[in-house]
């Protein structure tokens, strides 16, 4: 940093910094934001490891390392500086959390490579991508390897005898009813499903942490979850079950709140959340896939520029005489 010598005999003040106002900046940086998200993601990550043991650890490590390495290589090829701003870690982590614990590791790695290289960097890198990279990666795997992407095991922690069974949502049409037993399992996460999507309670805690720290805006998750619950009720579904199961919690708090791929305006965030909620329920009930959150968010990502265009704030003094 430039210093100013100010001895009285001879004032040499060559290095005065010229900058444009404001000359004060807040402490927030992109890095800080990203690391706070990673911190919050540690909660569901811990739950995933607790319930799915070594499988979870390997899948998470593979996809995070693959994501960061891909980012590094792509930056090298594009001759752009590589900054460890944490965004690649988030992508890898989020992807891992949406995968089945039994997924072959190479598949997880491919998902990460696709997420970073195609969904993010090909669009121009952080800030320019249209689709949420982690979800794009997951969608890619879902379409390429449908069989492996729907193998679900019951949580068994670090015990070796995993039992394959259906994910709760694929039973959605069967009569589950308002079973407090199941609600409790869903909240805690002791249930078969994706690696990090199972513990609704910890996801909620992480999400609320981010809201309190002002990293994310409360509007998106509230609108998303609210719309899902309401529409489920209207369609005669078990709303609590719809909200707690599948990828809704992680989607609403961690993916629909991604800055880059969702609207910047406050109204836009509400529109986005409601739209994603409606699409989620629609896909779950009428679509070909048992889980709709992933595609619902991706579809809304595509609609984001449009939403933004129509939700710009009205400038001060406009239309006043």
């Amino acid at each position: 940093m430039a210093k100013i010598k100010n001895d009285n005999s001879n004032k040499t003040e060559e290095k005065l910094i010229i900058s444009s106002a404001p000359h004060l900046r807040s402490k927030w940086s992109v890095k800080r934001t990203m690391y706070l998200v990673i911190l919050a993601l540690m909660l569901p990550t811990a739950a995933g490891i607790y319930f799915f043991g070594f499988n979870a650890i390997f899948v998470i490590l593979t996809s995070v390392i693959a994501a960061v390495a891909t980012e590094y290589l792509v930056k090298l090829l594009r001759k752009k500086p590589f900054v460890m701003d944490g965004s690649a870690v988030i992508t890898g982590l989020l992807l891992a959390l949406t995968l089945p614990p039994t997924i072959p590791l190479w598949m997880a790695a491919i998902g990460s490579v696709f997420a970073i290289a195609i969904a993010k960097e090909a669009f121009g890198g952080l800030g320019h991508n249209i689709f949420n990279p982690a979800l794009a990666g997951r969608a890619f795997l879902q379409l390429s390897f449908p069989a492996q992407m729907s193998v679900w095991i019951a949580p068994s922690g670090f015990a070796p005898d995993a039992v394959t069974s259906a994910s709760p949502l694929s039973d959605a049409f069967e009569k589950i009813g308002s079973n407090p037993e199941i609600y409790r399992e869903l909240l805690i996460g002791n249930i078969n499903g994706s690696l990090g999507e199972t513990s609704a309670l910890l996801l909620l805690a992480g999400g609320i942490l981010l809201i309190i720290l002002r990293v994310i805006d409360w509007r998106t998750p509230v609108a998303f979850i609210g719309a899902t619950a309401l529409l489920s009720l209207v369609l005669g579904q078990d709303a609590v079950y719809q909200v707690l199961s599948g990828g809704l919690m992680i989607g609403a708090f961690f993916m629909a709140t991604d800055y880059v791929t969702t609207p910047m305006t406050r109204t836009g965030k509400i529109v986005f959340g409601i739209g994603a909620g409606i699409l989620t329920v629609t896909i779950r009930l009428y679509g070909g896939y048992p889980e709709g959150v992933c595609f619902a968010i991706l579809l809304m990502n595509a609609a984001t520029p449009l939403i933004e265009r129509y939700t710009q704030p009205r400038p001060y003094g406009l239309g006043k005489k």
Partner: peptide, 19 residues
């Protein structure tokens, strides 16, 4: 300066309600 990450903070803070 890095690329805009679309966080929307500037919009939320602009008292003249600009983007």
């Amino acid at each position: 300066e890095v690329d805009c990450i679309h966080c929307g903070r500037c919009i939320d803070a602009c008292s003249m309600r600009l983007n």
